[in-house]
Design a protein around this nucleic acid. Structure first.
Lengths: 246, 246
DNA sequence: TTCGCTCCTTGACCAACATCAAATCGAGGA
DNA sequence: TCCTCGATTTGATGTTGGTCAAGGAGCGAA
């Protein structure tokens, strides 16, 4: 399979582009650029003029905002299949966050102008984008609630519970998707706090932690502890897939 | 002016319905219900099946989420001209938050089904809603950043700075839009913390507080203190109007 | 295997915010 | 005008999470 076919295929898998006529896919492919970057690469900075948006084919990227006095909020951590930067079309064509590769990644960048014009003139794409935004809104709403009301151990428990298919029962063993320092940042806490909070979670809810492998002995017990700080009970009402990605 | 004319007029002022054909406005008016409620009235609860959405004509309402163990996060505080509950169409027709009147209010409720069908079949409305959601996304993004990174005094300063037209210079006197307890909740802190943080802000930035009247002697000084915890400098990049509503 | 890193953990201490209790203020009603 | 009740402030104290510093563990490179 050649490069273009591969890109075409990746694009067709995107929910936002579902219903796009083939010639538009073609134009996206024509305008696409594939690149590979190592950890640490900054793809773009917040408020920078945006010309392209990105699709992750492999690896991991983090999106973050930085305040004037240097503090950093990790807005999201993305992996294969995730799209980002496309929302710049709603921000006067400036990126609303910075993006950095956190694990060697392959990605496709696409022209934002093309996407914007499709959103504006192709009704199906408009609707897709609407639902895409709505889903994002939902995630953000949950996030606001969590930041305001959950304790550090609860946030970690919640994070863990979102890593597997909550419709299954029984003990579960999961592998943390990226390193603890980044998880800590994603959850809005310091690495030290994360470490201590995880330890507390261990004593409170019979989970086992060995390196980056976590075994949850009793999902009910973990959710009882963690989900008390959330308005949705368990299972979470906002997971995108049954077998979930955070 | 009779009731229906008044409602029609109010609806026509809504950006989301801009471009609606007159007969659709008519159908909204036909399906509208006007009501007046006193402080404390719960309009709907989170996760309740949603049939109607609301437009505030006067008074104030708060939107909030409540966790299983009873903590409450105030998601927004709304006043005249604000729409709420319409996003239920993206949440399987359940309200994503509870709504309570906090100051005697007059409001119009409208059938959600009609709105939903218009969003789906009227391209102009779809686009309006898309921009409406995008704006909301932007607010939420900012909010997440603030919750994660701003201190209590900074959050208050930021709140104050959003109460007036930031393009004007010079000393400003403003009136707090609702009571301090509610502002505290809106900013995610306890009333006691609010009181003390406001006092600290007074010593740090030469603002004057007398009851619910605040005089800002030096906007630059206040913004230098408050906006350090924000990724946007001053003036804020996400205010909807020049003369702003928070 | 050892070196050199980075990630992670731990301890000691500190700052911010929450909690509980009590005093004070202030606007609306009697 | 006086009363009353909720809003606000203040004080005392506890909890949570952040900061700083140091030690330990894991892992790839030589």
């Amino acid at each position: 399979m050649d490069q273009k076919t591969k890109i075409n295929k990746a694009l067709r898998a995107l929910p936002v582009l579902e219903g796009c006529p083939p010639e538009v896919f073609e134009r996206f492919v024509e305008g696409s650029i594939v690149s590979v970057h190592d950890k640490g690469k900054i793809l773009f900075l917040q408020d920078e003029p945006a010309e392209r948006f990105y699709l992750l084919l492999s690896g991991w990227a983090k999106l973050f905002r930085e305040t004037l006095d240097g503090a950093q909020a990790v807005v999201d951590v993305l992996s294969s299949g995730d799209l980002f930067g496309e929302t710049a079309i709603f921000y006067e064509n400036e990126y609303p966050f910075s993006a950095e590769i956190v694990e060697r990644a392959e990605l496709v960048s696409l022209p934002l102008a093309l996407f914007k014009s499709e959103v504006e003139k192709n009704g199906a794409i408009t609707l897709n984008t609407l639902h895409h935004l709505a889903r994002h809104n939902r995630k953000q709403g949950r996030e606001i609630e969590h930041l305001a009301l959950q304790s550090a151990p609860q946030r970690i428990g919640c994070f863990l519970l979102r890593l597997f298919d909550q419709t299954q029962g029984g003990p579960v063993t999961i592998h943390l998707p990226y390193d603890k320092t980044l998880i800590a940042a994603r959850l809005g806490m310091q690495p030290e706090t994360f470490s201590r909070a995880l330890k507390k979670l261990r004593t409170e809810t019979d989970i086992d932690v060995a390196g980056s492998t976590v075994t949850i002995g009793d999902i009910g017990r973990l959710s009882a502890y963690s989900c008390g700080g959330c308005s949705s009970g368990f299972p979470c009402d906002d997971l995108e897939h049954a077998n979930c990605r955070h």
